[in-house]
Design a binder for these strands. Structure first.
Length: 223
DNA sequence: GACCAGGCACATC
DNA sequence: GATGTGCATGGT
């Protein structure tokens, strides 16, 4: 039995070889990445893009704009991304956090230690484990592994972890066995999402998974 | 028409 | 700590 470290690196190597660098996060500014992280909660990226385009169109993809805009107007603009009333509130919460908590001062944010920052992000209503870590990794360049639905499927389907691991268990697995590398964590999460899109949705599509010869795998039962 | 998506908060046991 | 529910649009 290979060590866990070798196993995780082999999976990464196989995915990287197959798909190449993924170029995440697909947002130009830090604010765009953070807004995208909220809008993509339980939502496909294509719908997120529609919502983001609306915000761009009205010059609202910045924290001053999001802070000032009327809640109802914000909700109607992000409608395509689903849960739009909920997410409008979440974006408002995040804008308030950035403006009142950090005075929109990125230097102040970058000077804050990762664990403190994570705690503060998690204090914002609407930002949970995955959204906080996505922001830390992709917007703020902190080496934090992002675990998600696809990570859970990968780990349970290939019996690397027991069924239904908690977020922290998944994250600890990667943190504990891999070097704390920004580049590695960035690509790894994006690659897991990529292979998830292609092979881990419906059971029949699990055939042809690029990890099949690397790992024993059990039948996948959807969600 | 069913099923799914780059989750989260809150209620209840 | 575990489990259930509401939130909602657009793609397959």
């Amino acid at each position: 039995m290979k060590s866990t470290r070798l196993l995780l690196m082999s999976i990464y190597g196989r995915l990287y070889e197959r798909y190449g660098p993924q170029g995440w996060w697909p947002g130009v500014t830090k604010t765009e990445i953070m807004v995208g992280a909220v809008l993509t909660q339980n939502t496909g990226w294509k719908n997120v893009v529609k919502a983001m385009d609306n915000l761009k169109k009205y010059k609202l993809l910045n924290y001053n704009g999001l802070y000032s805009v009327k809640l109802g107007r914000l909700a109607s603009l992000i409608r395509p991304s689903g849960y739009y009333r909920l997410k409008a509130k979440r974006l408002k919460n995040m804008a308030r956090f950035m403006k009142e908590g950090f005075g929109n001062n990125w230097k102040c944010i970058h000077d804050t230690p990762t664990d403190i920052l994570r705690e503060r992000l998690m204090g914002v209503n609407g930002i949970g484990d995955e959204t906080a870590d996505s922001i830390l990794l992709y917007a703020l360049d902190r080496p934090v592994f992002v675990a998600d639905l696809y990570t859970k499927r990968l780990l349970t389907r290939h019996k690397i972890l027991n069924s239904e691991p908690r977020y922290e268990e998944m994250q600890n697995l990667f943190h504990g066995h891999l070097p704390k590398s920004l580049k590695l964590y960035n690509e790894y999460h994006a690659l897991i999402v990529r292979v998830g899109h292609e092979h881990c949705r419906k059971t029949p599509r699990c055939r042809g998974c690029p990890l099949d010869d690397l790992l024993p795998h059990v039948a996948h039962r959807g969600r």
